[in-house]
Design a protein around this nucleic acid. Structure first.
Lengths: 348, 348
DNA sequence: TTGAAAGCGGTACCAC
DNA sequence: GTGGTACCGCTTTCAA
């Protein structure tokens, strides 16, 4: 193992000078710099990141906690975040939180968490207390859903408005028997009792999906004669989407519109509808949420709510860097805009 | 910031004892252990991983280098690897190598690489020299494709045999005008000149796809009257798959079978075929490679070559742990088996 | 069963 | 421009 001391010795300088050269500091003569670099080159020396981290107090690693890695939305998010943070000198470690409610999460995540300079929490089905307990004094940016904790920076999707717009699209196209796939029952959300939606007890489902359900409900309530049935009880997976759709078809055989909590669920739904002999968009209209890359490539292609990924990643990065630099900064709460991207699955 | 010293002081013991308690070592009295844990609990203390890494000489982080994060195969691989390595106390950092040939990669990757205990290289379009240069003495497991470097542990997919079997399936179903989508031209591979396929110059395309092309060629050559056209020139993406398919339709309007280098390309192809008014499987049969989750959920569902993901991840993990423990172990080279999963896209 | 000493390999600070 | 000194927070070693 070559150390900085070795390089220094070989170049006839002090370790400090090697450090200065490698850090690109300017207080080194051109001659010395060249000599040091020559030795570095020759020996293949690379700085020890652990030592660097210990000394600097920063690891250069950002944790990204997502419910499941193998989902369309996550791939999109991870890819963009990794690409965006790389030039900032930050690497991304992916934490899967999906299977692990309760203890698992508290145990595993907590012990690893301090290896990160910051944590991005993406639409995790955790209640705020969990997050609080786990985070400690770690900079946290919550992404996508709403947390009622004002402590954290937060980039929120237009969950409610986006879902309302998606639902509105189906209603406009003539749907009257809707199913909200993968969302908690909007009817049970008691929108009129004045309580904020996030006070509905600890998150058994991500806040995001509850907020989307509210949007669906609002849109449906605005149209006399329209009704919506919520079919929930699974995470956002393809088999989950297919399963829920079979359930939906059994519960509401006359369904003519499917508003899905995510594109992944919607893609599963498309498959299940095909299996059931329901044609999309002839018999049933389908709309998803997230506008993942795949949405444009399904057959029929999938209409979806686009949350503006670039903006979200950009803001997330900005808040992250800001908070790493200044942990005491006042938390920001941003809400993104959205667009409904219409494709074949709702075209009539 | 709470340190181990602080905890020790508060518990009236030495830092060493705190370390022993937290590491679960047995040489601590029950009484002392309880006292220490109580303080840890109360203060929310967590060990500093940087210091730990520095002292131990291991970071607990494994790099996973993939061409593009946002692809179906990667999601699958990453999810499984992350889940499998977590109980081993290893986290996964994702490195995107896709866009970065040459300098980029050498520069960026090399500087970060020593933060890892090991590196998993997944089907990267690098030539072996690159890998050699970058890796240094870092444990490397190459996954999926073939490297002619015997230095590395290697878990290879049944690229050639799998592709041959997939092609055979199409031929069996009556296809005679095949297109190999996303693979280098099998005709140009000069299979009979005795040269090993990996001597075809530095990897402008992943070895994996070239090996798959060889399989396609072998299968086609065995059937008189059958021919295959290779349409390549893109990485494995959905738009890429659609684009290549449009190209293929222009070059070979009579095509009746599509063998795709990956499922992602195949899914893009399904979309492009639908756009072109070609029915699958009525007019054209399509088969992919990887058997990603999505393959079972497209409409029509996609036949694919399944490389046995569980086995691959298991072997990768085994080799990884082995080599971390013993860097001088003799490199192993494993080749997986495969199964052809037939679905609607080839059912006639 | 407990703990003192000695670093792991860098870098901030400040003197030269 | 250069480098000595101290120390980041933890753990290996070995003595008590």
């Amino acid at each position: 193992m070559t150390t900085m001391r070795d390089v220094a010795a070989a170049a006839g300088v002090s370790p400090m000078t090697v450090s200065n050269v490698l850090a690109g500091r300017t207080n080194v003569s051109e001659e010395t710099r060249r000599r040091v670099l020559e030795v570095v080159e020759r020996t293949g020396y690379r700085v020890n990141t652990a030592a660097q981290s210990l000394r600097r107090g920063r690891t250069g690693i950002v944790g990204l906690a997502v419910p499941e890695v193998d989902s369309h939305y996550f791939g999109l998010l991870a890819a963009r975040l990794i690409a965006r943070l790389a030039p900032e000198g930050l690497r991304v470690v992916v934490e899967q939180t999906g299977a692990s409610r309760e203890g698992e999460l508290a145990a595993i995540t907590a012990s690893r968490l301090n290896a990160y300079d910051a944590l991005v929490l993406s639409a995790v089905g955790l209640d705020p207390d969990d997050v609080l307990a786990i985070a400690g004094d770690l900079p946290v940016v919550v992404l996508g859903e709403r947390q009622d904790v004002r402590r954290f920076d937060h980039v929120e999707m237009a969950n409610t408005d986006g879902a309302a717009a998606a639902t509105h699209l189906l209603l406009e196209r003539g749907c009257r028997r809707l199913v909200a796939l993968g969302m908690p029952d909007p009817a049970a959300l008691a929108p009129s009792d004045g309580a904020a939606p996030h006070t509905q007890g600890p998150g058994h489902l991500g806040d995001a999906f509850r907020l989307r359900a509210l949007g669906v409900r609002a849109a449906v309530d605005a149209v006399p004669g329209a009704r919506v049935l919520a079919v929930s009880g699974t995470r956002s997976t393809l088999p989950g989407g297919a399963g829920l759709t079979r359930e939906a078809l059994a519960l509401e055989p006359a369904l003519d519109g499917l508003v899905c909590a995510t594109d992944t669920l919607a893609i599963g739904a498309l498959r299940a509808l095909a299996d059931a002999g329901r044609r999309v968009p002839d018999d049933v209209l389908v709309v998803g949420f997230d506008d993942v890359t795949d949405a444009a490539y399904t057959v029929p292609s999938l209409s979806s709510v686009s949350p503006g990924h670039d903006w979200m990643v950009e803001q997330t990065t900005r808040l992250l860097l800001r908070r790493i630099a200044d942990p005491s900064a006042r938390p920001e709460h941003l809400v993104g805009s959205f667009t409904v991207v219409e494709r074949e699955s709702t075209r009539r």
